[in-house]
């Protein structure tokens, strides 16, 4: 990323893991991946209304459609909040699609707030 003001927002998954005290469920080899914006929602259609590159998705839903949504949008990493644990099918689907999954005990509000506070802001550009 060459544009100056965007550079500050770039954050590696390893940093996100640290900020959220998160556990990596799949994609441990992807921790050097950069994201530069984030979206927190339990409504997948709301997620589908926004398109950006290198987005982190935070959600409290743990069904396979969360991974499908990420797949369609080229989202490389999902954080499940409030200690949610997806079942093995969800993890296997994410693994097959090359999507990292992290889980954090923090609530949605606190998880988003922590990341925002560290410079990972949202991008509200709608299509």
């Amino acid at each position: 990323m060459s544009v100056g003001d965007r550079t500050e927002k770039i954050m590696k998954l390893s940093k996100i893991k640290e900020i959220l005290d998160a556990e990596v469920l799949t994609g441990a080899d992807m921790l050097e991946t950069d994201v530069d914006s984030a979206f927190g929602s339990d409504l997948m259609s709301d997620v589908l209304a926004f398109v950006n590159d290198r987005v982190l998705l935070l959600t409290g839903l743990v069904n396979p459609q969360v991974v499908r949504t990420a797949e369609m949008m080229d989202i490389s990493a999902i954080v499940f909040v409030r200690g949610k644990q997806p079942d093995e099918n969800v993890i296997a689907l994410a693994e097959a699609k090359g999507i990292a999954i992290l889980t954090t005990a923090h609530t949605m509000y606190v998880a988003c707030g922590r990341l925002y506070n560290e410079g990972l802001t949202g991008d509200e550009k709608e299509v």
Binding site: M44, S45, A49, L61
Partner: peptide
């Protein structure tokens, strides 16, 4: 409960 049914399906299809 599965994250859909928010009334965004057709609007999103039109948008994209």
């Amino acid at each position: 409960e599965l994250g859909f049914g928010a009334g965004m399906g057709l609007p999103n299809m039109k948008k994209y």
